[in-house]
Protein backbone atom coordinates (compact mmCIF):
# COMPACT_ATOMS: atom_id res chain seq x y z
CA UNK A 1 0.00 0.00 0.00
CA UNK A 2 1.14 3.47 -0.86
CA UNK A 3 2.68 5.73 1.79
CA UNK A 4 0.86 8.97 2.54
CA UNK A 5 1.37 11.99 0.35
CA UNK A 6 -0.25 15.32 -0.25
CA UNK A 7 -2.23 15.38 -3.47
CA UNK A 8 -2.44 18.51 -5.52
CA UNK A 9 -4.41 18.48 -8.73
CA UNK A 10 -3.45 21.19 -11.17
CA UNK A 11 -5.21 22.35 -14.30
CA UNK A 12 -2.59 24.48 -15.97
CA UNK A 13 1.07 24.32 -16.75
CA UNK A 14 2.04 27.41 -14.72
CA UNK A 15 0.18 25.98 -11.75
CA UNK A 16 2.07 22.69 -12.10
CA UNK A 17 5.41 24.43 -12.39
CA UNK A 18 4.61 26.61 -9.45
CA UNK A 19 3.88 23.72 -7.10
CA UNK A 20 6.75 21.59 -8.38
CA UNK A 21 9.27 24.37 -7.93
CA UNK A 22 8.05 25.35 -4.49
CA UNK A 23 7.98 21.87 -2.99
CA UNK A 24 11.24 20.00 -2.88
CA UNK A 25 9.57 16.65 -2.17
CA UNK A 26 7.09 16.96 -5.04
CA UNK A 27 6.81 14.77 -8.10
CA UNK A 28 4.53 15.11 -11.08
CA UNK A 29 1.97 12.37 -11.64
CA UNK A 30 0.96 11.86 -15.26
CA UNK A 31 -0.26 8.37 -16.21
CA UNK A 32 1.34 6.87 -13.14
CA UNK A 33 2.15 3.57 -14.79
CA UNK A 34 5.74 3.58 -13.52
CA UNK A 35 5.28 5.79 -10.49
CA UNK A 36 2.40 4.00 -8.84
CA UNK A 37 4.02 0.54 -8.77
CA UNK A 38 7.13 2.12 -7.21
CA UNK A 39 4.98 3.77 -4.56
CA UNK A 40 3.13 0.52 -3.94
CA UNK A 41 6.34 -1.44 -3.50
CA UNK A 42 7.54 1.44 -1.29
CA UNK A 43 10.75 1.82 -3.27
CA UNK A 44 9.82 5.49 -3.81
CA UNK A 45 7.85 8.01 -1.81
CA UNK A 46 7.09 11.70 -2.21
CA UNK A 47 5.62 14.29 0.08
CA UNK A 48 3.54 15.77 -2.71
CA UNK A 49 2.17 14.32 -5.90
CA UNK A 50 1.19 16.93 -8.42
CA UNK A 51 -1.44 15.41 -10.67
CA UNK A 52 -0.86 16.97 -14.07
CA UNK A 53 -3.24 14.54 -15.77
CA UNK A 54 -5.82 17.26 -16.40
CA UNK A 55 -3.52 19.94 -17.79
CA UNK A 56 -4.98 20.55 -21.22
CA UNK A 57 -1.92 22.34 -22.57
CA UNK A 58 -0.01 19.07 -22.38
CA UNK A 59 -2.57 17.06 -24.29
CA UNK A 60 -1.98 17.73 -27.98
CA UNK A 61 -0.93 15.63 -30.91
CA UNK A 62 -0.27 17.32 -34.24
CA UNK A 63 1.03 15.80 -37.42
CA UNK A 64 2.56 18.30 -39.83
CA UNK A 65 6.04 18.72 -41.21
CA UNK A 66 6.92 18.36 -37.61
CA UNK A 67 5.19 15.95 -35.32
CA UNK A 68 4.23 17.57 -32.05
CA UNK A 69 3.49 15.21 -29.19
CA UNK A 70 2.20 16.67 -25.96
CA UNK A 71 3.60 15.16 -22.79
CA UNK A 72 0.25 13.68 -21.84
CA UNK A 73 -0.24 11.79 -25.09
CA UNK A 74 -0.80 8.23 -24.06
CA UNK A 75 1.01 5.33 -25.64
CA UNK A 76 -2.15 3.90 -27.18
CA UNK A 77 -2.81 7.15 -29.04
CA UNK A 78 0.27 6.42 -31.13
CA UNK A 79 -0.66 2.80 -31.88
CA UNK A 80 -2.51 3.95 -34.97
CA UNK A 81 -0.36 6.95 -35.74
CA UNK A 82 0.11 8.01 -39.38
CA UNK A 83 3.82 7.92 -38.59
CA UNK A 84 4.79 4.26 -38.99
CA UNK A 85 7.82 4.50 -36.78
CA UNK A 86 5.69 5.66 -33.84
CA UNK A 87 3.24 2.82 -34.40
CA UNK A 88 6.05 0.30 -34.30
CA UNK A 89 7.27 1.59 -30.96
CA UNK A 90 3.88 2.13 -29.33
CA UNK A 91 2.58 -1.39 -29.87
CA UNK A 92 5.65 -2.86 -28.16
CA UNK A 93 5.21 -0.92 -24.92
CA UNK A 94 3.90 -2.82 -21.90
CA UNK A 95 0.44 -4.24 -22.34
CA UNK A 96 -2.79 -2.67 -23.60
CA UNK A 97 -3.80 -1.58 -20.11
CA UNK A 98 -0.51 0.15 -19.45
CA UNK A 99 -0.70 1.82 -22.86
CA UNK A 100 -4.14 3.18 -21.94
CA UNK A 101 -2.66 5.40 -19.25
CA UNK A 102 1.10 5.63 -19.67
CA UNK A 103 2.25 8.86 -21.30
CA UNK A 104 5.08 9.71 -23.66
CA UNK A 105 6.17 12.61 -21.48
CA UNK A 106 6.13 10.44 -18.38
CA UNK A 107 8.26 7.84 -20.08
CA UNK A 108 10.84 10.48 -21.05
CA UNK A 109 10.91 12.13 -17.64
CA UNK A 110 11.16 8.79 -15.83
CA UNK A 111 14.12 7.81 -18.07
CA UNK A 112 14.01 4.15 -17.16
CA UNK A 113 17.09 2.73 -18.90
CA UNK A 114 14.83 0.06 -20.38
CA UNK A 115 11.98 2.40 -21.33
CA UNK A 116 11.04 2.44 -25.00
CA UNK A 117 10.38 6.11 -25.73
CA UNK A 118 13.74 7.55 -24.70
CA UNK A 119 15.57 5.30 -27.18
CA UNK A 120 12.95 5.90 -29.86
CA UNK A 121 13.20 9.67 -29.37
CA UNK A 122 16.97 9.47 -29.61
CA UNK A 123 16.61 7.86 -33.00
CA UNK A 124 14.15 10.56 -34.00
CA UNK A 125 16.46 13.34 -32.84
CA UNK A 126 13.52 14.81 -31.00
CA UNK A 127 13.52 18.12 -29.24
CA UNK A 128 12.23 17.91 -25.69
CA UNK A 129 10.18 20.95 -24.77
CA UNK A 130 10.24 21.63 -21.08
CA UNK A 131 8.43 24.06 -18.88
CA UNK A 132 9.85 25.33 -15.64
CA UNK A 133 10.11 28.22 -13.24
CA UNK A 134 12.55 29.95 -15.60
CA UNK A 135 10.29 29.50 -18.55
CA UNK A 136 10.24 27.12 -21.47
CA UNK A 137 13.34 25.38 -22.79
CA UNK A 138 14.09 23.21 -25.76
CA UNK A 139 16.56 20.44 -25.03
CA UNK A 140 17.96 18.19 -27.71
CA UNK A 141 17.16 14.60 -26.87
CA UNK A 142 20.88 13.78 -27.00
CA UNK A 143 21.35 16.10 -24.03
CA UNK A 144 18.20 15.12 -22.22
CA UNK A 145 18.84 11.65 -20.82
CA UNK A 146 21.77 11.94 -18.45
CA UNK A 147 21.80 8.48 -16.94
CA UNK A 148 19.56 5.81 -15.52
CA UNK A 149 16.48 7.64 -14.24
CA UNK A 150 18.34 10.92 -14.70
CA UNK A 151 17.42 13.71 -17.08
CA UNK A 152 18.30 17.31 -17.80
CA UNK A 153 15.12 18.41 -16.05
CA UNK A 154 15.82 20.89 -13.33
CA UNK A 155 13.88 21.42 -10.17
CA UNK A 156 10.34 22.44 -10.93
CA UNK A 157 10.68 21.55 -14.58
CA UNK A 158 8.63 19.04 -16.45
CA UNK A 159 8.41 17.66 -19.94
CA UNK A 160 5.79 19.61 -21.87
CA UNK A 161 6.11 17.85 -25.18
CA UNK A 162 8.31 16.55 -27.96
CA UNK A 163 8.93 17.60 -31.52
CA UNK A 164 10.49 15.66 -34.32
CA UNK A 165 10.06 14.81 -37.96
CA UNK A 166 8.52 11.49 -38.81
CA UNK A 167 11.42 9.69 -40.49
CA UNK A 168 10.98 8.57 -44.09
CA UNK A 169 12.03 5.15 -42.92
CA UNK A 170 12.18 3.69 -39.47
CA UNK A 171 12.16 0.48 -37.51
CA UNK A 172 12.00 -0.63 -33.91
CA UNK A 173 13.24 -4.09 -32.98
CA UNK A 174 12.83 -5.21 -29.40
CA UNK A 175 13.76 -8.45 -27.69
CA UNK A 176 11.98 -9.31 -24.45
CA UNK A 177 11.72 -12.52 -22.46
CA UNK A 178 7.97 -12.27 -22.18
CA UNK A 179 5.52 -10.44 -24.37
CA UNK A 180 4.97 -7.48 -22.06
CA UNK A 181 8.35 -7.43 -20.42
CA UNK A 182 10.96 -4.72 -20.50
CA UNK A 183 13.44 -5.18 -23.31
CA UNK A 184 16.62 -7.17 -22.99
CA UNK A 185 17.71 -4.87 -25.74
CA UNK A 186 16.01 -2.85 -28.44
CA UNK A 187 17.17 -0.86 -31.41
CA UNK A 188 15.42 2.12 -32.96
CA UNK A 189 16.47 3.31 -36.40
CA UNK A 190 15.30 6.40 -38.21
CA UNK A 191 16.72 6.99 -41.67
CA UNK A 192 16.35 8.39 -45.11
CA UNK A 193 17.34 6.33 -48.11
CA UNK A 194 17.67 8.15 -51.44
CA UNK A 195 18.45 6.41 -54.70
CA UNK A 196 19.52 3.32 -52.83
CA UNK A 197 21.91 5.23 -50.59
CA UNK A 198 21.43 6.05 -46.95
CA UNK A 199 21.47 9.82 -46.80
CA UNK A 200 21.27 9.82 -43.01
CA UNK A 201 20.53 7.37 -40.24
CA UNK A 202 20.08 7.75 -36.52
CA UNK A 203 20.43 4.54 -34.59
CA UNK A 204 19.64 4.31 -30.90
CA UNK A 205 19.56 1.40 -28.55
CA UNK A 206 18.53 0.45 -25.07
CA UNK A 207 20.20 -2.33 -23.19
CA UNK A 208 23.43 -1.22 -24.87
CA UNK A 209 24.62 0.91 -21.96
CA UNK A 210 23.35 2.08 -18.59
CA UNK A 211 21.04 4.43 -20.48
CA UNK A 212 19.62 4.70 -23.97
CA UNK A 213 22.41 5.64 -26.36
CA UNK A 214 23.02 6.41 -29.98
CA UNK A 215 25.19 3.96 -31.81
CA UNK A 216 27.30 6.58 -33.53
CA UNK A 217 29.75 4.21 -35.16
CA UNK A 218 26.85 2.39 -36.74
CA UNK A 219 25.41 5.66 -37.94
CA UNK A 220 28.73 6.69 -39.41
CA UNK A 221 29.07 3.39 -41.20
CA UNK A 222 25.68 3.76 -42.81
CA UNK A 223 26.02 7.33 -43.95
CA UNK A 224 26.05 7.72 -47.72
CA UNK A 225 26.32 4.05 -48.58
CA UNK A 226 23.83 1.64 -50.11
CA UNK A 227 22.10 -0.64 -47.63
CA UNK A 228 23.65 -3.89 -48.79
CA UNK A 229 23.90 -7.11 -46.82
CA UNK A 230 27.57 -6.41 -46.26
CA UNK A 231 26.92 -2.95 -44.91
CA UNK A 232 24.23 -4.31 -42.61
CA UNK A 233 26.55 -7.04 -41.39
CA UNK A 234 29.33 -4.61 -40.60
CA UNK A 235 26.84 -2.28 -38.89
CA UNK A 236 25.68 -5.17 -36.73
CA UNK A 237 29.27 -5.96 -35.87
CA UNK A 238 30.03 -2.33 -35.09
CA UNK A 239 27.02 -2.17 -32.76
CA UNK A 240 28.33 -5.09 -30.74
CA UNK A 241 31.77 -3.47 -30.49
CA UNK A 242 30.42 -0.08 -29.54
CA UNK A 243 28.04 -1.29 -26.81
CA UNK A 244 28.74 -1.52 -23.11
CA UNK A 245 25.65 -3.50 -22.13
CA UNK A 246 24.58 -3.93 -18.51
CA UNK A 247 24.17 -7.33 -16.90
CA UNK A 248 21.25 -8.28 -14.70
CA UNK A 249 19.07 -11.27 -13.93
CA UNK A 250 17.44 -11.02 -17.35
CA UNK A 251 20.62 -11.33 -19.39
CA UNK A 252 24.40 -11.14 -19.27
CA UNK A 253 26.27 -8.30 -20.94
CA UNK A 254 27.69 -10.72 -23.46
CA UNK A 255 24.29 -11.98 -24.52
CA UNK A 256 22.86 -8.47 -24.69
CA UNK A 257 25.74 -7.55 -26.96
CA UNK A 258 24.91 -10.42 -29.28
CA UNK A 259 21.22 -9.54 -29.26
CA UNK A 260 22.02 -5.93 -30.00
CA UNK A 261 23.90 -6.98 -33.06
CA UNK A 262 20.94 -9.03 -34.27
CA UNK A 263 18.55 -6.18 -33.48
CA UNK A 264 20.62 -3.76 -35.56
CA UNK A 265 20.72 -6.21 -38.42
CA UNK A 266 16.98 -6.79 -38.35
CA UNK A 267 16.09 -3.14 -37.89
CA UNK A 268 18.22 -2.17 -40.88
CA UNK A 269 16.73 -5.04 -42.83
CA UNK A 270 13.29 -3.57 -42.30
CA UNK A 271 14.12 -0.10 -43.59
Amino acid sequence: MIPRFEYIRVFSLPEAVDVLSRREDAAPLAGGQSLIPMLKLRVASYGVLVDIGRVRELRYLRYGDVVEVGALVRHYELEESPCGFLRGVAVRIGDPQVRSLGTVGGSLAHADPFGDWPAAMLALGAVVKTAGPDGAREVAIDDFVKGPYQTALERGELVAGLEFRCPPRGAYVKFARRHNDFALTAVAVAAEVKEGHVSWARVAALGAADRPVRLRKVEALLSGVPLTADVIASAAEAAAKEAQPPADFRASAEYRRALLSVAVKRALGRL
Binding site: R178, D181, F249
Partner: peptide, 16 residues
Amino acid sequence: LVTSNLAFYYVPTAAE
Protein backbone atom coordinates in the same frame (compact mmCIF):
# COMPACT_ATOMS: atom_id res chain seq x y z
CA LEU B 1 14.96 -13.10 -4.15
CA VAL B 2 15.55 -11.19 -7.37
CA THR B 3 12.45 -12.48 -9.14
CA SER B 4 10.40 -11.00 -6.34
CA ASN B 5 7.14 -10.22 -8.12
CA LEU B 6 5.19 -10.99 -11.27
CA ALA B 7 7.02 -8.30 -13.23
CA PHE B 8 10.29 -10.17 -12.79
CA TYR B 9 9.03 -13.74 -12.78
CA TYR B 10 7.88 -14.96 -16.15
CA VAL B 11 4.47 -16.53 -15.83
CA PRO B 12 3.56 -16.81 -19.51
CA THR B 13 0.97 -14.54 -21.10
CA ALA B 14 -1.47 -15.47 -23.86
CA ALA B 15 1.23 -14.43 -26.33
CA GLU B 16 3.58 -17.20 -25.18
